[in-house]
Design a protein around this nucleic acid. Structure first.
Lengths: 342, 342
DNA sequence: CTGAAAGCGCTAACAT
DNA sequence: ATGTTAGCGCTTTCAG
């Protein structure tokens, strides 16, 4: 349609017969401008189809209206929920959320962060607490409001968080799962997760609970980083073939746990009698599954909402130094791990 | 740490003993600068921790390096997969993806679009083809490369697409499901979806297939817009209570279909004998489910990859006027709809 | 291969 | 309530 270049603030000003500054004000602080001129300006804006060029205002205000979020993969339903809640909260506060997926690659993480940093982000959210050394350096040298999600600093040598933290104890979550399996009467619990700092902590908790309860260490096998339903299928097939010896399984994500549930059914393994299954995340499917899935619930919405709140406070300059918010986790016992008559 | 304001291009130039322009070149077109000066500059960049301010370059180049995407909800696994693939492809081409969730609200859609337009997007992706009138106006008056996903223009009065389109026929997809249920020998198929333009088209195809095969129109009941597993649970509970009379169900998303599968199991409804169930999307869980889920496969990755390719071509100015890419859809027959002995 | 000048479109800070 | 001036940090253009 219109081949001519886009109208600018000054075009609007000219058409409305006022100065550029007045147009600027009419758009950002309407109450600072008389009713009459505002109307003229609005009219001109509509007539020209004027859309302010945010790059220009960013340049002078140093605010982009963008919050960055680095996550592993949007394909993980818990993260999708979190991102959605974050996005809605931030939208209400006038921000857009720019998402970067690291897909568990440290290189990718550093690359994304570097690229994000140039965008004058008003805030940054990291959906995990364990970073590549190079990433850490970048993070420490920046001064934008920063929040880490999910991983509370813990363990033998707790990491030094680079920002505020909203999360839960991975150790405690793993311990809760281990304790539950022991209490159910299972004797050979196994852990199926990914091999990284976060899941190592979950395993540490799991192991301690199992070892305290049964005097033996649980088995541990690693699955792929991206939580996938097929990982659960594989595990059960290997159990059926006798390659893995266990009577209960803790998966660090509900998706593989659901895959395990289906596969047990297919292969005739009775859950929870022959094999107990515990997931992680409490996705909606856990409640609906048959048998329903015992799992560790993470209050994802609360994580997201707290994050938005903290971030907005930080941006407004209210230094809320509650640097650590523990939202906790909770074991939800359902049908897939029933108490056995010994 | 560093309280002083961020270093600029000129700070780097000063430290390296060259002009700002040379630094700019060294960073964007390294081969246009002598090896020696480049080294000096790189050194200075590192020393100062310089990060270019993209707002400034955006202002002059009019390119943001951002592609916008308007989707309904990231919570829909098919969209999550698509977004992930899109993001990876765009990252390779040097773009970031800014996601906006409309959550099925037309107001939200318009609001987001308006906000996005000011960001000097280099391209825009719309993950659906049916827009609010106000949105349409905005879209038509803009000249940024634009691609619509999923919905091919079709129906009695095919809509006029606002950009290039990568998608499939919703009508054909619905028809395939209807035809399949009829061929399986079911006599009272029902359709469970959301009431919008897109799903109306799927229903139209479904109805035509059913009506041609059986001489009767299928039942139709509406579910919530956001595909949720609980919708499937509700439907089966109502069937069990005798409130809905059907012997086979087509859900327009795999998630409610899976919820239906589980609930049938719980209530003792035999699938596929008593009730046939067909989903939509072919999520990984469909193959793993027990019984495995018959569904309509949408090649989400192909959609995403075609989109990236088209978008990059458009941005480079290669006007590829294959405005319509039909990736097709495919019925995948599995255990949840088995052929009956009549 | 390198530099100087000009300006992208907007807003902060001061006038009036 | 409105206008003027200056400049945000970068790149385009044209000289050297």
């Amino acid at each position: 349609m219109s081949t001519k270049s886009k109208p600018t603030l000054l075009d609007v000003a000219r058409l409305a017969g006022v100065s550029g500054m007045t147009v600027s004000r009419a758009l950002s602080k309407p109450d600072k401008v008389s009713e009459q001129t505002r109307q003229k300006i609005e009219q001109a804006v509509r007539e020209l189809g004027y859309v302010p060029n945010l790059a220009a205002s960013q340049l002078v205000t140093r605010r982009s209206g963008i919050i960055g979020a680095l996550i592993t993969t949007i394909t993980n339903p818990i993260l999708a929920t979190t991102i959605e809640t974050l996005q809605q909260g931030l939208a209400r506060a006038g921000y857009h959320l720019l998402i970067g997926e690291t897909r568990f690659s440290q290189e990718e993480e550093t690359k994304l962060l570097r690229a994000f940093l140039g965008r004058q982000l008003d805030g940054l959210i990291l959906a995990y607490g364990y970073h590549a050394p190079e990433t850490l350096e970048l993070l420490q040298s920046t001064d934008i409001p920063l929040i880490e999600l999910w991983d509370l600093p813990e363990g033998e040598v707790p990491r030094q968080p680079v920002g505020q933290v909203v999360g839960f104890s991975n150790w405690a979550a793993g311990a809760a799962a281990g304790r539950h399996l022991v209490e159910c009467g299972y004797r050979r619990p196994a852990f199926f997760g990914y091999d990284d700092d976060r899941e190592n902590l979950r395993f540490a908790g799991f192991r301690q609970a199992v070892s305290e309860g049964l005097g033996v260490d649980p088995l541990r096998l690693n699955t792929s980083p991206v939580p996938h339903i097929d990982d659960g299928v594989d595990v059960i097939q290997r159990i059926a073939r006798g390659e893995i010896d266990c009577d209960s399984a803790f998966f660090t994500n509900d998706m593989p746990a659901i895959g395990a549930l289906f596969t047990c059914q297919r292969l005739g393994i009775r859950v929870p009698d022959e094999l107990g299954i515990c997931g992680f995340g409490d996705l909606p499917i856990a409640r609906v599954a048959m048998p329903s899935l015992t799992t560790v619930r993470i209050p994802a919405e609360r994580v997201a909402n707290s994050t938005v709140e903290l971030l907005c406070q930080r941006i407004r300059g209210e230094q809320s130094w509650d640097a650590l918010v523990d939202v906790g986790s909770e074991l939800v016992a359902r049908e897939s791990t029933a108490l056995r008559r010994l």
